Amino acid sequence: MAYEWLPPTRDYQPLWPGKLVEVRNLPNGLTLEIWDYSRKLAGDRWLIGMLAQIEVKVGAEHFSAPEMFERFLQETGGVIYYRYRKERHFVDEKERNQVFETIKDHFLKAALEYLSHPSFRDRLIQSEIPLFERKVRWEEEIRRKDEEAERLEELWKDRPI
């Protein structure tokens, strides 16, 4: 899997630094952060990277069971993220600021109304929580199948074929 740059947190440090370039308080009460994680690739060539993210806190009422919410808290700290990332490779150093600003401006022009919609938070939760719960159920099923395979292997290991 390819490396995806994420902003630094108390528990995570990215492979290369990024810079928070803009914070917008949206009319729906959410906060949009825009990060520049551009870096030099070789010579005068750059990777231009922009990450837009919105953090959304999630409560127990959005989950099918209290156990799912507890697991969600353990794995995510109780938040989900909307994230949009755009990259351009091998950009000339002289064009790097202009390319980043163009990427940012096009994103804001295309997505700001959508991200500012009053129901954006609820729609994000309605799409992300079922994905999380499906992932948890799938992991549990895989764990059960592995345990059953190990049990059968132990049961049949000394029997002749």
Rank of each mutant, 00 (worst) to 15 (best):
L51G: 03
L51Y: 05
L51E: 08
A52M: 10
A52G: 11
A52C: 14
Q53T: 12
Q53C: 12
Q53K: 12
I54W: 05
I54A: 04
E55N: 11
E55M: 10
K57F: 08
G59M: 08
A60C: 07
A60F: 02
E61P: 05
E61R: 09
H62R: 10
F63N: 01
F63G: 00
F63I: 00
S64E: 09
S64Q: 10
S64G: 06
A65Q: 05
A65H: 06
P66I: 02
P66A: 06
P66L: 03
P66V: 02
E67M: 03
E67D: 06
E67R: 08
E67S: 07
M68R: 02
M68Q: 03
M68I: 00
F69G: 01
F69W: 05
F69S: 00
R71K: 11
R71T: 08
R71Y: 00
F72V: 01
F72M: 03
Q74W: 06
Q74C: 06
Q74V: 14
Q74G: 10
Q74L: 14
E75I: 10
E75C: 06
E75T: 09
E75W: 08
T76L: 08
G77H: 06
G77Y: 04
G77N: 07
G78D: 02
G78C: 04
G78T: 01
V79N: 11
V79K: 14
V79R: 13
V79G: 03
I80C: 00
I80H: 00
I80T: 04
Y81C: 13
Y81L: 15
Y82T: 01
R83K: 12
Y84D: 13
Y84L: 14
Y84N: 13
K86L: 12
E87I: 13
E87D: 13
R88H: 11
H89R: 13
F90Y: 15
F90L: 15
F90V: 13
V91R: 01
V91I: 15
V91Q: 04
D92L: 14
D92P: 07
E93L: 14
E93V: 12
E93C: 09
E93Y: 06
K94Y: 11
K94F: 11
K94G: 13
K94W: 09
R96E: 10
R96I: 11
R96K: 15
